[in-house]
């Protein structure tokens, strides 16, 4: 029983982290239609900025300032780069972010070195929250979950309760109409890009010390954020939230259930040729690729995603 509880907690914690990583991208992708390949780079920048600030004045100031700085960088990128590339089409925009990701990955080690940096969890948040069956649940993980839920609440509040939020929401579904109504869509886009990247930065501040802060951390996030956005559906924060939890659960339970592919297929009455490599494949092995399987299945069966309002 304890084991089930701890697994459930792990899965929710991982899902919430994924939501932090992808919420900003959902906003950007939904409004601009662009897969921002540099999104994970902003996540990395967040971690490094926070590390740098933490060496001067501790974790908490970094938590506040680093996302703002990352958002600033994001706005500059949008203002001086993406905006000019937009007229060449989506592919050009996408490739621009592709190039940015390469440049960031080379610039970061130039400044902070190629090794990992000692970005540590603050002393106040160290230690175990509680312990189940010999496995501790760290306070920091609880903090991470709380931050992610807070982020969801705040985003929801901004999007539904403020004027700018309503305009953004409108732009998510009908950008042309919003422009026709006389709103300055380019400025909204810049703010949105800044906001989205700031969210990635925040995820970096919190994820950087929970995991390892080093130059390939952006690459290690990989395409998983795209998977979440696509599975969740375009223009849907709730969809991204659901997809994050789903993928968190999928990955965690595939690791802990310890069944083979053969056993799963037996449930639906199929069998594999015995004594082949395929029959020995376990779900643990497949865990990390299950999200991609889910994405392909969703795209084939329901291209708008779980809760998407429109197709891309």
């Amino acid at each position: 029983m304890d084991f089930v509880v701890i697994t459930l907690l792990n899965s929710v914690a991982y899902g919430l982290l994924l939501f932090m990583l992808s919420s900003g991208l959902t906003l950007i992708f939904s409004m601009m239609g662009v897969l921002n390949f540099a999104h994970a780079s902003f996540y990395m920048l967040g971690a490094y900025f926070a590390y740098q600030i933490s060496t001067w004045s501790g974790f908490w100031l970094g938590l506040l300032l680093a996302p703002l700085l990352v958002g600033g960088v994001g706005m500059l990128v949008e203002w001086h780069g993406l905006r000019h590339v937009r007229r060449f089409g989506h592919v050009a925009e996408l490739l621009f972010t592709f190039g940015l990701a390469i440049v960031f990955e080379e610039l970061v080690p130039l400044i902070w070195g190629k090794a990992s940096v000692p970005y540590a969890v603050p002393a106040q948040l160290e230690g175990a929250l509680f312990s189940l069956h010999g496995a501790a649940f760290p306070i920091y993980k609880g903090f991470m979950m709380a931050m992610s839920l807070g982020m969801l609440a705040a985003l929801y509040g901004v999007l539904t309760r403020t004027r700018i939020g309503l305009i953004i929401q409108a732009s998510l579904t009908k950008p042309d109409m919003v422009e026709a109504l006389g709103h300055n869509v380019p400025r909204i886009t810049m703010l949105l890009f800044g906001g989205g990247t700031a969210l990635a930065g925040l995820a970096g501040v919190i994820g950087g010390n929970a995991f390892v802060t080093e130059p390939s951390m952006a690459a290690s996030v990989g395409f998983i954020v795209f998977v979440i956005v696509v599975v969740g559906g375009l223009g849907s924060l709730g969809g991204a939230f659901l997809a994050s939890l789903l993928i968190g659960a999928l990955q965690t339970f595939s690791v802990t259930l310890d069944v083979t592919l053969q056993q799963v297929l037996t449930l639906i009455g199929l069998s594999l040729p015995a004594d082949t490599n395929l029959a020995r494949v376990s779900l643990v092995q497949l865990g990390p690729v299950l999200p991609y399987l889910l994405m392909v299945a969703i795209l084939i069966l329901r291209p708008r995603g779980l809760m998407g309002v429109r197709e891309s």
């Binding site: 239609g33 395409f223 690729v289 991609y292 399987l293 994405m295 795209l299 291209p303």
Partner: peptide, 18 residues
């Protein structure tokens, strides 16, 4: 469009992972 791009990405990742 994007659907094709993402399916091709997903299938490539699946192929590589297997």
């Amino acid at each position: 469009g994007t659907t094709f791009a993402m399916i091709s990405l997903g299938i490539a990742e699946l192929m590589f992972a297997t």
